[in-house]
Structure formats: C-alpha cells, structure tokens
C-alpha cells in the first residue's frame, strides 16, 4: 500500500487528508497524479496539468518521475507560503 496525504487547500477542497492506495497500480508520482486526476470533480480541477502541484515522497521533495514502491508516503500540496 501507498499512503497518500493532502495538505492545506488541497486537503480542504478534496475533503480528504490521507488515503491508502494499492501499490501495484502505480510506478511513479506521475501515475498516481493521473489516477487522481481521473476521479472528476475537485480531483480533476486541482490536479489538472496546468495546475501548480508540489509532491513529496517519504517527506522529500519529489517530481513526476520519482519512483514509488509499497510502503511509501506520498504527499501532494499547493506551492508553499511560509515565512
């Protein structure tokens, strides 16, 4: 299983902060994004290709090609605004 987490505006608009997905369906971050984008509604809007989406794998900044394996923690969030 892969644990997927959402933060800030994404968490609120999706109404989800974490979910478990089967690892054999996804090999990299891009696969996961494509999967989420296909769900329709807020999922399709937030993860549309022209949206700025940041990703992290096991709490390190990742990009679309970052590989995924069973047990990984993946997070998606909007561009950061701290400081």
């Amino acid at each position: 299983m892969i644990e997927v987490r959402f933060f800030a505006r994404f968490r609120e608009e999706l109404g989800a902060d974490t979910e478990q997905l089967e690892a054999d369906r996804v090999n990299c971050v891009e696969d996961l994004l494509t999967d989420l984008r296909g769900r329709g509604g807020a999922w399709s809007r937030l993860f549309a290709e022209d949206q700025r989406v940041m990703a992290a794998v096991n709490q390190e900044v990742a990009d679309q090609s970052t590989p995924l394996k069973d047990g990984d923690e993946v997070a998606f969030f909007p561009p950061v605004t701290g400081g």
């Binding site: 505006r9 997070a75 909007p78 950061v80 605004t81 701290g82």
Partner: peptide, 22 residues
Amino acid sequence: LKMQAPFWKKELTEGGERWVDA
C-alpha cells in the same frame, strides 16, 4: 524557507477565509 519548506498560510479577512497564493 519561503520556497521549499512546507508551510501554508490561510488568512481570515472580513470577506471570509482564503489560502494565500505563492
């Protein structure tokens, strides 16, 4: 920190709540 550290600001204004854009 402003570019990379995962923090997000949400403001409460007279018009309601809003997430701050990067």
